[in-house]
Design a protein around this nucleic acid. Structure first.
Length: 269
DNA sequence: AACAGCACCTGTAGGC
DNA sequence: TGCCTACAGGTGCTGT
């Protein structure tokens, strides 16, 4: 669920809350939430002090004073909370206890999220495309595309751009007036320029509103993201387009739902 | 290369 | 308060 804006929101909160804290121990309640050996993960983290928290695409990075580097990927329902409420308790998968008595809990109903140790920060998360927060970066990436795959599919490909998921792919294509099935190599200069400018804007706007809460996503403080009310296409199937009044449609593109306005996003026909 | 299909999991919503 | 199905913000693997 969490895409770049939601992960960025969580990272900013974690910086304030856990940088400088020393991990006393890690409790693993569901071993498969750890990529690799759980006992090694526990051992490497115990007694480590958090030096920095970072984001790369949808990965949250944690760097300890001794150089140990690990990531958390929230996938669909992963969340980080300091203290779980009654409903969260049955879904706590990993528990970090700090020396100062505070804690951080990885809560994940669907168990898709993963924690992973890497040799070091520079060798983590290989294969990710560039961050889509700057128009020049997006423009360069889109210019190099030679594939005929639908743009919607390409935007979801983390090796092309890191951090875009189903919500913001749909929202940025809507804002750019581009049909989600448009072959990536057939983007004309005007639409490419538009998408390059609009994608970073959509993401930054969502970050300002602490992300989009549909159901599970919460900030570390437990708040909902406020970007949902701004969605123009995602989740609005059957409702009128805010721009032209046409009915928002939902189709399937490579196994994912794609929401769009058949009038505002006509670049296919 | 690119796609479909399934796997990984649980919760929820809707139809009956 | 039952049963059954479809669907969900993500990714990775297999087979065609």
């Amino acid at each position: 669920m969490p895409e770049l804006p939601e992960v960025e929101t969580v990272v900013r909160e974690l910086r304030r809350r856990i940088v400088g804290k020393t991990i006393d121990r890690v409790r693993v309640h569901w071993e498969r939430s750890i990529h690799g050996r759980a006992d090694e993960f526990r051992r490497r983290l115990a007694n480590g002090t958090v030096r920095a928290v970072s984001r790369r695409g949808k990965f949250i990075g944690f760097e300890l004073q001794d150089g140990t580097f690990f990531t958390i990927h929230l996938r669909m329902t992963g969340r980080l909370v300091q203290e779980p409420n009654a409903a969260d308790k049955k879904h706590v998968r990993i528990e970090f206890r700090f020396r100062d008595g505070s804690a951080l809990h990885f809560v994940d109903a669907r168990k898709f999220g993963r924690l992973r140790l890497w040799p070091c920060k520079s060798q983590s998360c290989p294969g990710l495309g560039p961050e889509p927060l700057r128009a020049e970066m997006v423009r360069g990436t889109l210019q190099r595309l030679t594939t005929r795959r639908p743009l919607k599919t390409v935007l979801l490909d983390q090796t092309v751009l890191a951090g875009v998921g189903n919500i913001y792919a749909d929202e940025s294509l809507f804002a750019a007036g581009i049909h989600p099935l448009t072959p990536a190599c057939q983007l004309d200069d005007g639409r490419r320029e538009k998408l390059s400018r609009v994608l970073p804007d959509v993401l930054r706007g969502a970050i300002q509103r602490n992300g989009t809460t549909l159901r599970d996503y919460r900030t570390v403080a437990g708040a909902r993201g406020e970007n949902r009310e701004r969605l123009q296409a995602y989740g609005r199937t059957g409702q009128p387009c805010f721009v032209c009044g046409a009915t928002i449609e939902k189709i399937r593109i490579s196994g994912r739902s794609a929401h769009f306005c058949p009038h505002c996003q006509r670049s296919l026909k």
